[in-house]
Design a protein around this nucleic acid. Sequence first.
DNA 1: TGCCAGGTATAGG
DNA 2: CCTATACATGGC
Length: 274
Amino acid sequence: MSTSEILHIPLKGGIDLDKTEESGQCFRWRRIEQGVYDIPAFGQLIRVRENWVGINVEMLSDADSIDADLWNSYFDSKLNYEKIRKMPDKKDEFLCECAKYGKGIRIIKQDPFETLITFIISQRKSIPAIKTSVEKICEAVGRKIPGTDVYDFPTAEELYALDEKTLADCGLGYRAPYIHATAEAFAHGDMNVAALSEMNDEELLNALMTLKGVGIKIANCTALFAFHRLDLFPIDVWIQRALDTYYDGTFPLEKYHPYNGIMQQYMFAERHEL
DNA sequence: TGCCAGGTATAGG
DNA sequence: CCTATACATGGC
């Protein structure tokens, strides 16, 4: 029962789907062609086409209608990224270059559990390897998005139910017990998204870091990409390399409040130049 | 083939 | 508090 309706979403400051995907925040987007992606999220599969002012969303999975609020939120439609992209200090040539290249990158507001699990997987893995492991987990659980051949990302209960060997066969290495424990925490309600959402940034990071295998970097990525805490600035090997090269080790966070996370994403997207 | 990947837990100082 | 080290596995 797929709806034939097309939802148009204006995005303030526009979007470049290729650059957003390549900026390493989403690991399951499927490129169809330039500016067109199939995106599995929230138990649905949509086909997204970018245009001059935003995107058109087509529903590929079974649905009676398209949830406009959900996808407006997912693509952060109201924030004007073109305005933010002009924030870098003109004297900071490196950041200006990153922001120039980053035109069209938006911070996607993804599902918290999926984001947390995928970033636990991400530690000491290349982006292609992360994608492979994430797909293997989805296949292992084996529940398809209704009306499609695409596997949905598992719920906490589904992931917790996977036996040890099946999980190990997803190429997770030493992360497998971390994934299992995190799934258990959410499945049993020891940790829940509603409560996390109510916390301030510091409380949220601390709560996430109580999980085994979640340190400061993964906590920051989860807070930024799932809870939309745009001022948080995850530091990975690439960002640290940039900080050492261009900033004497630390980023001037005070200059870009409350959008340090977006500056970080512009920098990460430029990582190949480092 | 060997090196490195969107790090973290742990032990030792 | 800080630093050094082990850690599983895939991709290039």
